[in-house]
Simulated scan of single mutants.
Amino acid sequence: MPRLMQAARPAPMGEAPLAQHIGQEVATGAHVSAVRFISGAMAAALGDGTVRFWEPGVPEPESIVAHSGPILAVATHAEAGTILTGGDDGLVCRVGLSGAHPVAETGGKWVDAVAAAPWGGIAFSSGKAVTAIRSDGTRREIATNSTVQGLAFAPKGRSLAIAHYGGVTLADMQAKPSANRLLAWMGSHIAVSFSPNGRYVVSAMNENVLHGWRIEDGADMRMSGYPSKPRSLSWSPGGAWLATSGADCAVLWPFRGKQGPMGKQATPIAFAQALVTAVSCHPVSDAVAVGYADGAVVFARRGDDAVIPVRAADGDRITDLGFDAGGHLFGYGTEGGRLGLLDLRGIGR
């Protein structure tokens, strides 16, 4: 695959960051592991084992204790108003404003990854072992040859993607283990994601590259050119583009058409002097939120050099960011424990 395209760095806009106009920001005192949105509120998982639920207009988020140590993995649960968390205390919990409810445990071993299916099933990993629990409570154990780094359910199917050393395993939750399919590629695969249409699965690798497969025929593709690990992956509405972190810009790979990104160039947007650490595509438009290692956040758009400053750089690395399902709310978290929440409906009021 060709290396990343180069483009001119856009001049920053003269206006103050959006967060100063329509946003709220608070200090939590703990590293922010992940940011999700559920039922009109931001749910932020922290390194102190708590989940902070924050609604627009409320001065401070509500804190729910979920784990006795850091939260290591997070997924949005199919049950409204809850997220699924995994901690270094060996617990897997469903967490909402009513509290934290353990759903599984590993005997004290770290929970490395969690995933939740739209149909209600969940999965989690600890070391080389993966446990899948169907919505009816039936459990299935899946053993791998190396430590599992990432999990993802197919958006409309019953497949579970398992990222590990040597590739990605696709496990059919309703078939025998012998039906598992290995998508092999040498190296350590540390995150995995299905395209929204379920045609592609893409993994982030420890070798500063992405690797993807077209599921129908196993055709694979290598997406390279990153100076650091592209850990953050986000699909545009409909899956036409995959936005990624790992460079001094957000990198957008095209997935339209039968060939996907094979033989095509990536599109870079929102260049900066710092590495991109988090990306999130707006759910109903072509905008992309981009967070950087220096703490800055901007909104950018494919095909447009302009960016909208959201948060000014302060040296506090952005660890995660995202929109709610309607694209009305936006939130971010930092390595130093700051949370930001913006109600985008407030723009122009």
Rank of each mutant, 00 (worst) to 15 (best):
F37H: 06
Q259T: 14
D217A: 11
D324A: 04
D48Y: 11
V58Y: 08
P10N: 10
F124S: 10
M221N: 14
R134Q: 13
H31L: 10
V297L: 04
Q174Y: 00
V307W: 00
L4I: 06
S236M: 15
K258T: 15
L151A: 07
R199E: 13
W253C: 03
S98V: 11
M262S: 13
A240P: 01
A44T: 15
L151G: 13
T147G: 08
A44H: 07
S188Y: 05
A278K: 02
R3Y: 14
A123Q: 06
H328Y: 13
T144W: 03
G218N: 14
T319L: 03
C93H: 06
S285C: 04
A27D: 09
P12N: 08
A16D: 10
R345M: 11
S193G: 08
V276A: 07
M5S: 11
A104L: 05
T138A: 12
R214F: 13
K258C: 03
K229Y: 12
G121N: 02
A34N: 05
N145D: 09
Q174N: 14
D294A: 02
T138V: 12
H211R: 12
P196V: 14
P177S: 13
D136I: 06
S33P: 04
D217E: 08
A8P: 01
T334D: 03
Q6A: 11
I142R: 00
R36Y: 02
G57I: 13
A266K: 03
P254K: 01
E60G: 05
P309H: 13
V74L: 15
G40I: 15
A274P: 13
L339D: 01
R139M: 15
L233P: 00
L183A: 13
V26Q: 08
I71Y: 01
W119T: 12
A191M: 10
A80M: 14
Q20T: 10
G263S: 12
R338L: 09
G69M: 06
R214A: 06
V307C: 15
R158A: 00
C93P: 01
R199F: 09
M262T: 07
V26I: 09
K258L: 13
A296H: 02
V307D: 00
A184Q: 12
A293C: 13
S39A: 12
Q24L: 11
D294G: 13
F194I: 07
L84S: 03
R301A: 09
Q6S: 15
V95Y: 01
S203W: 03
L210F: 09
M1C: 06
V35S: 04
A247Q: 08
G263H: 09
D316H: 11
T131C: 06
W185M: 14
W253G: 00
G166Q: 11
H328L: 10
D294L: 07
M186R: 06
G340S: 07
V279A: 03
V290G: 01
H67Y: 14
G137H: 04
Y226I: 08
W185F: 12
I308N: 03
S125G: 08
K156I: 05
